[in-house]
Design a protein around this nucleic acid. Structure first.
Lengths: 155, 155
DNA sequence: ATGGTCCGTCCAGAAAATAAACTTATGGGA
DNA sequence: TCCCATAAGTTTATTTTCTGGACGGACCAT
């Protein structure tokens, strides 16, 4: 399988990874959720080559994860904002951060604290079942093929 | 920033991405959660070069996400199993799959269905607040620097 | 006029990813 | 014994991607 065939796999994980599973894309998305919106800001914060920033922002824009919004007319300038589809990626970011908080703590605690506005508390994300509300973990789940399954598919 | 500097960033997402943020690593982990354990099986299912499989399995093993377990002595053969640290990645996989299910459905529904054993229902994962139990989304959360924060850090 | 900001593109060299063939160790059958 | 098969990689050569730096265009402030 090649990288550009991923999006045609009958697998939701493969299709997602085709868009966001890149080395730098997740870092760009992290910054998006922290309020970074401009090309120069991404480049400065990440310290990677401008070519990659431009390429990844284009992919995310083409996929509808980010949206270009003009903030001044002359010279034409715009910023990159998360769309609804992009905001839907928040659980992905939270899950990754949470795993890092747990397994790669350097002893000084989490680098970023997150407060749930509606209850006012600093919180940890918990993955729960939509039906019973209990926490789900790998051992408590049974996977089986769905309608869109085909032999080479998975997840 | 370079790829191998990621793990030294004061950012839980960067540290995690240094381990699992690779193109193929997430696909390998997907298969792990579906019960795939042997080198040949990973290679056959993913259809990518053996070099990459070997390299990624080594990284995941070195990081303690997978563990080599012998299943026969002569010739020496072993399989790769998720450790507790690896099982902790389940919310990450679920979050990515869930996003794909929602935004890259081809009209035939999800390729894989998941049943929560304890309640017996097919379910969708919901990211909730550890303190109040309500669902969390990007707009309802406020991030701020924690103890391990430093100027270049994030998330 | 000079320098600064912002958002890119272009280029050549360096680094990484990839496919295909090969290696090692063993067991089974003709 | 010889040949084939299985499993888990390694080696080699090619292809792709990434990098750092320079460059460009459209403005603005001094």
């Amino acid at each position: 399988m090649k990288w550009d065939e991923l999006s045609r796999e009958p697998c939701s994980l493969a299709r997602s990874v085709a868009v966001i599973g890149d080395r730098w894309t997740l870092l760009i998305l992290r910054d998006c959720f922290l309020g970074v919106r401009r090309f120069e800001a991404f480049q400065e914060r990440l310290g990677i080559s401008r070519t990659i920033i431009a390429d990844r922002l284009k992919v995310l824009t083409d996929e509808g994860v980010l949206q270009k919004v003009a903030y001044q007319a002359r010279p034409a300038r715009h910023e990159y904002r998360l769309t609804e589809k992009g905001l839907d990626l928040y659980p992905v970011i939270l899950a990754i951060v949470s795993w890092g908080d747990r397994h790669y703590d350097d002893g000084r605690g989490p680098p970023i604290l997150r407060r749930h506005k509606s209850c006012g508390c600093d919180f940890q994300p918990v993955m729960t079942c939509s039906e019973c509300g209990d926490e789900v973990d790998a051992r408590g789940v049974e996977a089986r093929p769905g309608a869109a399954f085909s032999p080479s598919a998975a997840g």
